[in-house]
Amino acid sequence: MRILVNDEQREVTNTTLATILNELGYGGARIATALNGTFIPASQRDTVTIMEGASLEVLAPMQGG
């Protein structure tokens, strides 16, 4: 199915957030996720299911003021 990852179209085969993050290559990275604008805690990634057309945000630490 096609989903948006950080505003880019991606084709994924898995359905849970955890498996999709692994499929996309984020496994083990220190990241936080939001699905359709709602924060999804790491503890829920195994149970949250992603639907066709969903918008996934994957954020990592960066410099800030």
Binding site: R30, P61, Q63
Partner: peptide, 22 residues
């Protein structure tokens, strides 16, 4: 120190390296 978040592509290491530095 203040820090922030940004989008990171899969496989990119900038965010992880910054976290180690902080």
């Amino acid at each position: 120190v203040t820090v922030s978040l940004r989008r990171e592509a899969a496989g990119a290491q900038a965010g992880q390296a910054f976290w180690s530095l902080v």
